[in-house]
Amino acid sequence: MSDTEPIASQPSVLYKAYRRISELHQNALDKATPHSGPRWVTCCILLVLYFVRVYWAQGWYIVTYALGIYLLNLFIAFLTPQIDPALLEDPDDGPSLPTKANEEFKPFMRRLPEFKFWYSASKAIVIATICTFFEVFNVPVFWPILVMYFIILFTITMKRQIRHMIKYRYLPFSYGKAKYKGKEDTGKVVSS
């Protein structure tokens, strides 16, 4: 840049810092992407720390209830196919799941991919934990009622999801195409 350019066209220090932090954050996410096991262990540790914080502080039950409903919503989206067969007017529209053993393998495409599920759940847990440090979010409620509501909501929602899975015959977990083994190599040469 030349000395004659106006100062307003140069990025500010705050913008440069924000951009650098964004790059570091994206770099960390890129490195964590292939490691699903450690990512979920970290998420579970964050959730346990959150529950310890709520138990120790004896409050923030509304925040916990909202977090539970949000995580349930994410889980349902994770279990649901990307194209819901119930919403298709003609069953032949869009991709379909194989219904017979001799049909072509089609992997299960989720509405919410595993990485986005983990990322959204982790962000929600961190945000909920931050909320426990502000008294404004500590709304007084009778927490056993919230627990009962959540259990009822979870039961009804999962029952409906399982019925959907049975009706449209899909399993939301696929481990890839089946691999078939040929004959074992005995090491002997057969002459003809």
Rank of each mutant, 00 (worst) to 15 (best):
R111L: 01
I130R: 04
A101S: 14
I145T: 13
K106C: 06
V147R: 11
K123I: 11
S120V: 00
V126L: 09
F105S: 05
A121C: 05
F150P: 03
M148K: 10
F105H: 10
F142Y: 15
F108D: 04
M148W: 13
W143K: 13
S120L: 12
I152L: 15
T99V: 15
K123R: 03
F117H: 08
F117R: 07
W143V: 13
P113Q: 03
I152P: 11
S120T: 01
I125P: 02
L153P: 00
F115L: 14
A128H: 05
I125G: 04
P107R: 05
A124K: 03
I127T: 09
P140Q: 13
N138E: 11
M109Y: 13
L112F: 03
L112Q: 03
I130D: 13
I127D: 04
V136K: 15
L146Q: 09
F117W: 10
K123H: 09
A121T: 04
K116Y: 15
A128M: 06
N138H: 11
S122A: 09
F108S: 05
K123L: 12
A124L: 06
K106V: 14
E135D: 15
F133T: 13
K106T: 11
A128D: 05
F134G: 07
V147H: 11
L112P: 04
V136D: 12
V147W: 04
M148E: 03
F137T: 08
S122I: 01
K123A: 12
A124N: 03
L146I: 06
F115Q: 10
I130M: 12
P98Y: 01
V139I: 15
C131H: 06
I130E: 12
W118N: 04
F108V: 13
I130T: 10
E104D: 01
L112R: 06
N102P: 00
I152W: 14
I145K: 08
I151R: 00
P98D: 07
I130V: 13
W143I: 10
